[in-house]
Amino acid sequence: MNTAEKEFHPLSQQFSGGSIVLADYGFRSKDGVPENCKLCAKGTWNDRMSVEISFSLMTVICGLKRIHHRLQAYIQARLASVAALFNILMILFHLLHPDADPFQMSIAEFSL
């Protein structure tokens, strides 16, 4: 929060050669972007939107904006459990709705 997106360039450079980083135009800087960073105009690279939708769903259902753990191990455990929960709920969704598009994501029905 309250950090310019260009501050994450060194982090994305660590993955150069192994993966790409999909970002919006707020990620650009006057010094350029890392070579593995792909700037996406609205409506392109729909994979990026799938990731953003996944994060949005998990933020709402698992309360990811309210993580107040003080130790890194607890934060890692919380994020690992959220990832496992997401995978389980996606499998369950497609078992309950076999006619749904394989790329459809809806886990809101499991929110209590």
Rank of each mutant, 00 (worst) to 15 (best):
N2H: 09
N2L: 08
E5L: 08
F8D: 01
H9F: 04
H9N: 00
H9T: 00
H9W: 11
P10V: 01
P10Y: 02
P10G: 01
S12K: 09
Q13K: 10
Q13N: 05
S16D: 12
S16R: 13
G17M: 07
G18H: 15
V21A: 08
A23T: 12
D24F: 03
D24H: 02
Y25S: 11
Y25C: 07
R28Y: 04
S29D: 02
K30G: 00
V33P: 00
P34A: 07
N36G: 09
C37R: 07
L39A: 05
L39M: 15
A41T: 10
A41W: 07
T44P: 07
D47P: 05
D47R: 07
D47N: 05
D47S: 08
R48A: 07
S50Y: 12
E52Q: 06
E52R: 08
L57Y: 11
T59M: 05
T59S: 09
T59Q: 06
T59A: 14
V60P: 04
I61L: 15
I61R: 15
G63Y: 03
G63T: 13
L64K: 02
K65P: 02
I75P: 00
Q76T: 04
Q76M: 02
A77I: 02
R78L: 04
L79W: 02
A80G: 09
S81P: 01
A84H: 09
A84P: 05
L85H: 14
N87K: 03
L89C: 11
M90P: 00
I91R: 09
I91V: 08
A100Y: 06
D101G: 04
P102T: 07
F103H: 11
M105D: 02
A108C: 12
E109D: 08
F110K: 10
F110R: 09
S111G: 11
